[in-house]
Amino acid sequence: MKLNSTVALTLILLILMLGAGYLSAIWGFAVGHEAVKGVTQPDAAPTSKIKIRKSSSQQQGAVGMLKEEDILNTVKARIEGKGKKARPEKPQPQNKQSSEKTSTQTAQAAKLAADVLQPGFPITNRNQGVTLEVLSAKYSGGALLLKVNFKNEGDRTVRFLYSFLDITDDKGRTLSANTEGLPGELPPNGKPFSGTVSISTALLDDVKKLSMSLTDYPEQRLRLQTLNIPVTR
């Protein structure tokens, strides 16, 4: 009788354990299913979505075609002066080199004008269409500077060699001189050419007037001569 009671108790416990395990399995499955309910499987072909989006963007950014009638009307309106006004042209900036050249020429002209105002000047000599002018005589840096100007309005080119330039004082003495900027050749275009003749002040202690003469080279067909150039200090 005691053995039967033990077997019955064992069976009851075994049944209870099986039932508890079954209930635990069902409860665990329910909880797991609830936990993964919001999770979806990843897209196996993500590039397809990119292509779709790209196509949509291209379609949205596409420019609509204009009607031929609208284009013709617009062209006609512009031809008749009803279109948009043309923008005014911007003034071209002045060339820097041209501006500097103009300023230099203005300064030279002003300087020449100032030289001409010196009493007794200019002293001019003209021969065969060629003109020699002595514009001024000023002392500077231990030398007398004679500002001279050449111009050829003749019909041929004239050449000079300034070693043939003769300068004499009022006592008939020949003086040595240096030249700077004087042209070696004068074309017949009437354009003035300027330069400087310098004489050391050591040669001019008692000199009041000078004379200057020059011939062309090598023909020596013309002679330019200026007399009584005042050099008083």
Rank of each mutant, 00 (worst) to 15 (best):
S194P: 05
Q41I: 10
F160N: 01
A107P: 05
L14Q: 09
N95K: 06
K151L: 06
K54C: 10
E180N: 14
P91W: 06
H33G: 14
T106W: 11
G38M: 12
M17S: 11
R126W: 06
F160L: 05
K76N: 10
Y217F: 07
L144R: 08
T168N: 04
S163H: 14
S103P: 05
D206Q: 13
R159N: 15
F160V: 00
L186W: 01
K84P: 06
L161H: 12
L182K: 07
G190I: 00
G83W: 02
L11K: 13
Q105G: 08
R233T: 04
G172N: 02
R223Y: 05
L72V: 04
I167V: 00
I26Q: 14
L135I: 01
G184T: 03
M1W: 12
P91V: 04
G28Q: 15
K51F: 10
T104R: 10
T226C: 12
E185V: 08
M1T: 08
L182T: 00
N149G: 07
N152L: 02
G120F: 10
Q41C: 08
V197P: 00
I26K: 12
D205K: 15
R159H: 14
P91S: 09
N149E: 08
S213N: 04
V231T: 01
I52M: 13
Q41T: 10
A35H: 12
V36W: 14
A202G: 10
T179F: 01
G64L: 13
Q58G: 09
M1D: 09
D43I: 05
T10K: 08
Q60R: 15
S198G: 02
F150A: 00
L214C: 01
V116F: 11
R87H: 09
